[in-house]
Design a protein around this nucleic acid. Structure first.
Lengths: 224, 224
DNA sequence: TTGTTTTAAATTGTCGACACATTAAAGTTT
DNA sequence: AAACTTTAATGTGTCGACAATTTAAAACAA
């Protein structure tokens, strides 16, 4: 447990905020192991910070659902169960479905352009790596980010991008997920974008819901 | 600004947590006025607490989206715009729609019973107050709570009941909302419950989405 | 040895104090 | 009198220390 330099995130003004962002990353990427206890004195030493600043960061991590705290007992990194994972898919289906519907209605031209560019890039990778695309734990995730951004609903954006997606990424790192659905997922992405381009909100929502549902079913099978 | 006794909430173990819950209530019910600045020293004095404990509560309030903090400038109670309100409706439509779908599939008998009881109680109030039902700022909200509970998806429950609904209640207090749709809202509630009882998830979701959408449109008109 | 008390160490919750940044007021210059 | 400087006052960010609780270890009894 050597010292750690805090990543100088652009929007990191205060120490407690940098601690928050750094710890969030460590938890998501599994360097702070799921289920492990969090020792305030130890972490504070590790980051050359006071316990007060650290505790402020812990409060926010708890609100994000990345740690669990019990009075006088301390904090632990959450352990995500299979059930939690499936629940997350249901929530994503609802929210990202709505994001698609809104994106189809509110999308700006630059949003659409960015989506198409992204798709093209993925197509390239797809051909290059032939089936092993979307290999990285984060693989193909930027697509969902962009869609949500295009919805132009700041609450939706915040809920997904600043809250739920951290849990999603945490799962991916934990399970070392390689989507066996790389090709089909890519096709589905394209159809979704086409619906958004055509400003067909109804269809865009339906396609996204199926896309996520398929992913959910795929995982559900693998987990048994 | 006299002293305030912290409500001895059942699940209030630590001071910072009680502060959090108390402040959350004060903001939601408008005693801490939207847009007003939050002075850490003043609040700390008012609750006979140290600034440290107070700040821990503020971190959580920020994560809840009830206050906004800017470095070295302090915190302010959020001011909810008309746009925010409409965005909230879109998110609710997605999440509560999914909650209905899941409730229809997963509902326990006790859930269903509780829902029917609630409906009966509302029917009584309806007849009694003839049109002025749902008058209180919180009016008829327990219905939505119950539905979400019945979904049996803990992430969904947490997202709605422990996060978004605080904002919803804040709006109601702010706008002193009296749903002019009391009668129609009640009818819609009954139909939703019937669909859940029949375990028709598809229909339950559709009805809830229409219900919320209608409410949204109603508000949208009033705001102009 | 096993199980129970007692004791000590470590951890959490809370507090007050200091350094720096921001804001308000007082003073100065044009 | 208006605008800019300078100074004081207030407020935020951070830290170290103390009290209370929990956990670990030691001492003891069965």
């Amino acid at each position: 447990m050597s010292d750690v330099v805090l990543e100088p995130v652009a929007t990191a003004q205060s120490l407690s905020q940098r601690l928050f962002e750094t710890l969030r990353g460590e938890i998501v990427e599994g360097r702070l192991v799921a289920g492990s206890k969090i020792s305030e004195p130890e972490l504070a030493r590790r980051f050359n910070a006071s316990r007060g600043s650290l505790r402020e960061a812990l409060m926010r991590l708890e609100a994000l659902g990345l740690i669990e705290r019990r009075v006088n007992l301390g904090a632990r990194v959450v352990t995500l169960s299979r059930r939690d994972l499936l629940e997350l898919y249901d929530v994503r289906e609802a929210l990202e479905g709505m994001a698609c519907r809104l994106a189809a209605a509110n999308r700006s031209d630059t949003d659409l352009q960015a989506l198409c560019h992204l798709l093209a890039r993925h197509e390239q990778q797809q051909e290059l790596q032939a089936g092993t695309a979307y290999f990285q734990p984060e693989g193909g995730f930027d697509f969902h980010f962009r869609i949500v951004q295009a919805s132009n609903n700041s609450l939706l954006i915040d809920t997904l991008c600043n809250q739920l997606y951290y849990r999603v990424r945490m799962y991916r790192y934990q399970l070392g997920m390689v989507s066996a659905r790389a090709q089909s997922a890519f096709r589905e992405h394209r159809h979704i974008i086409e619906a958004i381009q055509a400003q067909d909100g109804e269809l865009a929502e339906l396609l996204m819901r199926r896309h996520i549902c398929a992913s959910r079913n795929n995982i559900e099978n693998k987990l048994r």
